[in-house]
Design a protein around this nucleic acid. Structure first.
Lengths: 215, 215
DNA sequence: TTAAATTTGTGAAAAAGTTATCAAAAAGCG
DNA sequence: CGCTTTTTGATAACTTTTTCACAAATTTAA
């Protein structure tokens, strides 16, 4: 049976369970997680059961056991490694982003078409994109973060697929064409912001006192 | 009847239709859009029909008319305005991000708890967070981008809600507690990357020749 | 020890979302 | 003009996801 439940939801549970652990709790109930993550308690239990996570009736879930299980599911004890392509605004920020390091994800190196232009210190090497194939093979990298300009992203992707990359975190608005075995997670900043404008416009709850209502 | 179809998918159609327009096309078929966006043609037609977009049997959709309709749906002719809170790595990058400007979205100002620390020029004013309430009311702002540290994001959100913000683009891993009329779009960078690692691990298609297979 | 209260786990039901099917309309063509 | 091809639009069928409902288990308390 293939697990298809939303992994991201389970990652949110993990985050929340860690918080409870930090606060000194030993057990947690589905309704605690539900409230914290913003889903229903039934959803939490269904998700857990898909991963074989069992609790105790009336006793909830053991936090230590939960954390161990999450570590198994997400390989929490190994350091994960990736590379980043494109050291523009977004790329440079991601290299410095602490949220990855905290969770034992390292960006091993960054690549750019013109590394000489890159200013500032990032704590990781910045190579020319020509070096990427060699680096991927020598370091056995499977994933890449794409923060290149949209015009070149498909070409860059094609080359990275050839070098063996099978997972992309794509920050460009392009819908990447990739072979079936390759996974792409898209983060389209414009899409998220524009859809937010749409939602607030249609939800009709904004401040009525605004004279100049232009959004 | 409330439209619930995925707005983000329609935004992708818009992007694709614009591309076709730039290339000089006058009409487009559901299968063109489907291929470009990575969905089924039926899905495209379903989405269109939810917005009352009609095509011609055998003639497809008129690109000019489509673009007009999209402009109506997304208020494409007005400049949209927002503010950004937290000028760390991510915040600073977003202020400089060209993807917003291209689509007529302006970040009018940024706010931080210590604006004197902010180095570099961003083309927009960077104020102390204490000024945010005044700014929101004077400029009639409805949305905010949150790129503050996760520990303070709930408190910041509460204050912004009080000032009248009803839409958030949240870059922290926190699940924000907000009143029912407030919309939150989350972009959790860690979640996207970690789930990518999960997918490629479970898809079992990675390079078998790797000696050192640690991800 | 027994009863009451609470919470899990699961199968059924409902809801939401996607895909398939096909008649009807329009375009192209001879 | 009439025939063929293509594509839409609508409805139906299917799939997936979420919620409901409740028995069974466990804890707490009297």
């Amino acid at each position: 049976m293939i697990i298809k439940s939303n992994i991201q939801r389970v990652l949110r549970y993990q985050h929340c369970v860690s918080n409870f652990y930090e606060l000194g709790f030993d057990k947690i109930y589905s309704h605690n997680l539900a409230e914290a993550v913003g889903v229903s308690p039934e959803q939490v239990r269904k998700d857990f059961s898909e991963f074989g996570i069992r609790g105790n009736k009336r006793g909830g879930y053991d936090i230590h056991q939960l954390l161990d299980t999450f570590q198994d599911i997400f390989h929490g004890k190994v350091d994960k490694r990736t590379i980043l392509i494109g050291m523009g605004n977004i790329g440079s920020a991601l290299v410095k982003y602490r949220g990855f390091k905290k969770k034992r994800i390292s960006i091993l190196a960054a690549f750019d078409i013109d590394p000489s232009k890159i200013k500032g210190t990032y704590g990781i090497p910045v190579y020319h994109f020509d070096e990427v194939d060699k680096f991927i093979n020598e370091n056995c990298i499977h994933t890449a973060i794409l923060s290149v300009p949209v015009v070149s992203v498909q070409q860059v992707t094609d080359e990275l697929v050839k070098s063996g990359i099978i997972g992309f975190l794509n920050f460009t608005p392009a819908i990447l064409q990739v072979p079936a075995h390759v996974v792409v997670n898209n983060i389209d900043l414009y899409l998220e912001l524009e859809s937010l404008f749409y939602y607030i416009r249609t939800s009709e709850h904004r401040n009525i006192n605004c004279k100049e209502d232009k959004f």
